[in-house]
Amino acid sequence: MARPIWTGSISFGMVAIPIRLVPAVRKKSISFNQLDDRTMSRVRYRKVSEETGDEVPTEHIVKGYDLGGSNYVILTDDDLSPLAPKKSKEIDLETFVPVDKVDPMMFDSSYLILPDKNAKPYALLAEAMADSGRVGIGRFVMRQKEYLAAVRSDGSRLTLSTLVFPDELVNPESLEEFEHLDGVEVSDKELKMAKGLVEALSDDFDPKQYTDEYRASVEKIIEDKAAGRTIVFEDAPEPRGTVIDLAAALEASLKDAREAKGRHPSVTSTTKTTAKRRAAAKKVVAETAADDEAPKKVKRARKSA
């Protein structure tokens, strides 16, 4: 069963329909870990002070609003908590509007609305909305933030899309490039040709035609590399003659040590301070050998008399 991210009810008029929300979209982009290619250790983000470069503990991190010129207003949880929207378990549908009156630009994230076991009120709402050709508009609070939402019906199932607030949409008037359109004139002949082109390419929208080709190629590379044991993470294969190579490096280090000693017989090296630099655990991610076998299944030897 899908894990709901919100549980509550849709209310309109005197009716409250218990429902749960699950995300309607599962992003499928491939995620990678960042590795240091010298040690194969994972790379981590740390929050460090710009001034000292030291890591800053969570308890010392506060929110500052930038007034410009390195002046900040510090806002604490105490300042903000009275403003936080009250927790509410209701999506209050305030109005039902024709579906084409909602600018598609406003649609943000989409969720499926799951019915309760007693599904009748849900079914009723879904059917009534589909018949009316309208979407329900309302507000609700999820994760301490208030959202504007549109509830839609496909006839039997309801979906919810959060909407951005109108003042969050970028006003085209504010972009001067659009001014290039002012005073442009097109002739009837040109328009006719362009319309012809559009018509020639007209088709029904079939979303299945569109797949993420980049993702598919990356998956293919990963699969090939894994199957062919051309392992991405492993060290570059050592050249033949490692032992000779290694012996040469060892000889060279001995020679260096002898020379250093000749120059400064009493000095060996720096010690304790460098030792304090605790080397972080280095994880070398390496594939297991190809001949691994699953060890799990065994037949249980029954006692025989």
Binding site: D235, E238, R278, A280, A281, K283, V284, V285, A286
Partner: peptide, 17 residues
């Protein structure tokens, strides 16, 4: 200085030829 062997925890390495 702490325990210098903490640096070995979880390290899974392949021995070179």
């Amino acid at each position: 200085i702490g325990n210098s062997f903490d640096a070995l925890v979880g390290v899974q390495q392949t021995l070179p030829e």
